[in-house]
């Protein structure tokens, strides 16, 4: 393995959970719902995936359970904000508090156990391509899912009728409702999709990234994922770019430290955050283009008039 290859591999591992959680949140926000509970859903996914993998011995079952757990947990948010029209920002933050506490409770007996690692699946022929083969086609299942989800979501949003409806709801739930689209039902499904993605992102943390369970192991990645959706101005391919940019700068700064440049580590650690701001400043200067992709009814509650 060459140095460049090794670095790229590290970047993919760091970027995958961000990408998954962000792509899920992107769908949620495209439907007009702002769920700030990503951090909580990731951490629930992580603990349940780990526990399930330990109990069944299968990392795949673990990942599945992690996804299901994230999805179930997001239902709590959906019920409050969609059925009871509670404030979305506050409910999302409360979901994070609950998720961090609950995961600590569930995970108490699993702390310190050696985890089950999700193994790599080499895709025949493709994985032997020089340079990119090992990187792109000899990875774990969650990596493949994360890449697939970008193109899947992109296709769904822009090429299918359902996707069009979902975007319509996000832009103007009133008009969408008038056209006979079921706003609440679609939003429920979107939130659940976001929860499942965040759950899978959590599973990646506890089954691939560092196969173990430790409290608060999401370590703020949910917040970064939220920022990446904004960074991407709600476009799936840009989420891919954003997650990998963030991952690359994060890993790059560690390498810069190891090379011993003598720059205070705090400044290097701040680079990923500054880089995302600067790139966003550059790409969002076109006001019209940005507005076009921003879901206009983001964060607003909807109650059908009868």
């Amino acid at each position: 393995m060459t140095l460049a290859e090794a670095i790229l591999l590290t970047i993919t591992t760091a970027a995958t959970p961000l990408l998954l959680a962000a792509i899920g949140e992107l769908v949620v926000e495209r439907s007009g719902v702002l769920n700030l509970g990503v951090e909580g859903m990731i951490v629930i996914g992580a603990v349940v995936a780990f526990a399930a993998a330990q109990l069944t011995g299968s990392a795949y079952l673990g990942a599945l359970f992690g996804m299901a757990a994230g999805c179930l947990f997001s239902l709590l948010f959906a019920f409050l904000t969609l059925t009871l029209v509670a404030n979305q920002v506050a409910t999302g933050l409360a979901l994070t508090i609950l998720g961090l506490g609950l995961s600590g409770m569930i995970g108490e007996s699993f702390v310190g156990q050696r985890g089950v690692q999700l193994d790599e699946i080499a895709i025949p022929f493709l994985s032997s391509i020089p340079l990119i083969g090992n990187l792109l086609f000899n990875q774990d299942l969650i990596f493949y899912v994360s890449i697939f989800s970008v193109f899947g979501v992109s296709w769904f949003l822009f090429k299918t009728r359902l996707g069009l409806q979902l975007r319509a709801i996000g832009d103007s739930h009133g008009s969408a409702h008038a056209l006979g689209i079921s706003v609440i039902k679609t939003r429920y499904l979107a939130v659940m999709f976001g929860g499942a993605c965040a759950g899978l992102a959590g599973a990646q943390l506890s089954l691939v990234y560092t196969p173990q369970w430790v409290e608060n192991m999401s370590a703020g990645r949910g917040w970064i994922a939220l920022a990446l959706v904004v960074f991407a101005s709600w476009r799936p391919l840009r989420v891919l770019a954003g997650a990998y940019l963030f991952g690359a700068v994060t890993i790059g700064q560690l390498h810069a430290q190891a090379l011993g440049f003598g720059i205070p580590s705090q400044f290097l650690s701040a680079l990923p955050y500054l880089a995302t701001i600067i790139v966003l400043v550059i790409i969002s200067r076109n006001r019209r283009l940005t507005l076009m992709n921003t879901p206009a009814s983001l964060g607003q509650s909807f109650v059908p008039d009868r």
Partner: peptide, 21 residues
């Protein structure tokens, strides 16, 4: 345990938000 305290805090927040409906 302190985790339970966090969970309980989450409960309180959820109920307050829900009841505001």
């Amino acid at each position: 345990p302190d985790k339970v305290a966090r969970v309980f805090q989450g409960f309180l927040l959820f109920f307050v938000l829900a009841c505001d409906t």
